[in-house]
Design a protein around this nucleic acid. Structure first.
Lengths: 220, 220
DNA sequence: TCGTCTTCTCTAACATAGTTAGGCAATTAC
DNA sequence: GTAATTGCCTAACTATGTTAGAGAAGACGA
């Protein structure tokens, strides 16, 4: 008994959901989602893995908490300029920045249940409210929301998942050229040739907003 | 020796990469990606798990093969009507149908390396070529490709991942209403309220195409 | 025809994972 | 002061991806 280390003398605060969340985000940022294990997470908290299960039900819960946590870092700004295009752009740009700060995050929702954490919902509320004020209703609102949602999430997911090295890019180009009969356009222009993700996001968002604006003017 | 069953007398064709691909797609379709294990896949082929590794390097390879295989089922149609909007719509609609036939597929690329299987590349070539014929070049082409890519993949991923039961939807609505001060718009209109995925896809695609068309007319 | 080589599957096993059971100290509640 | 609760621990179970190495069947050359 006397040989065992005293728990409270470790100097660190006891385990708590908040500390777990903090630790898992740090772990994901530093090592990526493949290296997230309950044991590694526990180690970071100077605790044994099963202890985590007192505060959390499953590993999936931990991931859900992590995703919601990053959306809580920078709550959506709410400057109602009256210019809905600018507002949507601002929301989505900040949204995207959050996802890129935590490159593991964009891929998570695609594979799992709907994200319904409070912080994420705040962003969704922001986007939704802006579109409602812009004049969208019913099906148009739904389609606009999903299109914009897919654009942010998709572009962030693409950017973070599709990173390849120069060597891989070179090899890919080689393969394409070797099969230029099957892929003439790709062989000529390249595939995954463009690294200007910011530009693609912004330009693509512009396309979408142009289309949305036209829709609004047509049926207001 | 004589007691052991003879291998070739099992009546089934021997293991091959093609048979593995066929089996993994069936397994994924029937049981989903969470239930894909090398042992279960092997069982389906009346083989022990380690035997698979003669034909395949890792489990990820198997998944890559599966994804590419489904894109080979229905090779992209190539009716060049001259109407690029109709052509893009046709390609993306078929693309989406493929993803929805195999609900596990849309989530895969988001998490992994770029898809560069031959069948998938054929679809990408189709989309790319259509946009090139429509008049897109350089940055605009890249942005258009990614925007459309994200729209198909994203909408299919959303549709297949975000399915919730009526009970869950009811509970979610309840939660939102209980917090209607934080989420006024969502509480009123609902979140995940709309099941018209087809409609959202088509309408959203319309927005995008409108925006793309405007861009083309502006700077041809 | 014999032996050797290649091909392919098997058995056995390892390391790592998520998760559960149950114990035990510290703290809190009465 | 005793009893209940909290919250962490050790030990262990099951599942999974993957490797090592044995061995059978056929191919192939002498």
């Amino acid at each position: 008994m006397w040989l065992r280390p005293q728990r409270t003398s470790r100097g660190e605060p006891p385990l708590s959901r908040a500390r777990i969340v903090e630790a898992v985000v740090a772990l994901l940022d530093e090592e990526g989602i493949d290296r997230l294990t309950m044991r590694r997470l526990a180690e970071r908290l100077a605790v044994m893995a099963p202890s985590l299960y007192w505060h959390v039900d499953t590993k999936d819960d931990v991931i859900d908490l992590a995703v919601d946590a990053i959306f809580g870092e920078a709550p959506p700004a709410a400057d109602r300029t009256g210019d809905w295009r600018a507002e949507v752009t601002a929301v989505l740009t900040a949204w995207r920045a959050t996802l890129l700060r935590h490159p593991w995050a964009a891929a998570v929702p695609a594979r799992r249940r709907p994200t319904i954490g409070p912080h994420f919902l705040a962003w969704m509320e922001m986007l939704h409210a802006t579109l409602v004020r812009a004049g969208f209703t019913e099906k148009g609102l739904s389609a606009a929301t999903w299109a914009l949602y897919n654009h942010v999430m998709g572009s962030a997911a693409s950017e973070t998942a599709l990173h390849i090295t120069d060597e891989e890019r070179r090899l890919g180009q080689e393969q394409l050229r070797a099969n230029s009969d099957r892929y003439p356009t790709l062989a000529e222009r390249g595939y995954l040739y463009d690294d200007d993700w910011d530009g693609s996001f912004t330009t693509g968002l512009g396309y979408l907003l142009d289309g949305l604006e036209a829709q609004l003017k047509q049926a207001p």
